[in-house]
Design a protein around this nucleic acid. Sequence first.
DNA 1: CCCCATGTTGTAGG
DNA 2: TCCTACAACATGGG
Length: 261
Amino acid sequence: MPELPEITLYKEYLDATALDKKITSIDFLNTSGLQAPKEAFIKAFEGNKFTGSRRLGKYLFIETSGEKALVLHFGMTGKLEYYKNQDPPKYSGVVFSFEDNDHLAFVCRRKLGKLFIAESLEEFRQRKELGHDALDLSEDEFLELLESKTGIIKGVLTDQHVLAGIGNLYSDEMLYQCKIHPKTKTNLISEKDKKQLFRKMQKVLEMAINKEGVRKDFPDSYLIKHRKEGDDCPACEGKIKQIKVSGRSTYFCPSCQKEQK
DNA sequence: CCCCATGTTGTAGG
DNA sequence: TCCTACAACATGGG
């Protein structure tokens, strides 16, 4: 379930399990996500160690003791699983085995995840033209990013070239909490509301990280607990509606979030 | 069988 | 140039 909060959790998981151990072999159970030939992955990482990691929006950038870095993108269903003394988990794509015989699997049921080899963080950021990580920018930078935008706000929030890390679920959530209709044109949002959006963005993402991405533990006042057409809005008498915005299912409360044109 | 699903990317058109 | 919609990718679950 990977948007920025989930990637943060994967980072913590990787850092706690798989660092500073020599990678003795790499097994490719499925090669569909590889963005370079598997020989290149072997050459770059076998015999080296993972030494640390950074979150870049929805990407996990993993530093190594070698020249290259490994970058993971989890698609819609990707995750990491660390294990020992057993078969690889179902839907494993690539398995890294360490000198202590433990393993780290990149698991991806729908095979929409991707693995990249990068020269450096900056090189990769530029290659993907990634915007600022959503939890790594100031209010001023946020306001400046929105300044030049005329498109609908949900599209801007989820455009990884503008802001990296926000996806379908959490963009709906922060707009709901700000009482902004998801199709509002960005240039029609007041300065005050943009500042509120910045605060809610941080609050929503941080809450999700604190709850370790477990949705049933999220506050009932959150839209995320009511992502169903016709469900009761937790804040008013309204009913939740589902619409399509740029092809994605979008949930909102028409009564809290008035459309302005 | 049909439709849905936390993502990205390329294409077409306004 | 910027913006929007839409198909494609792949596959399990309701």
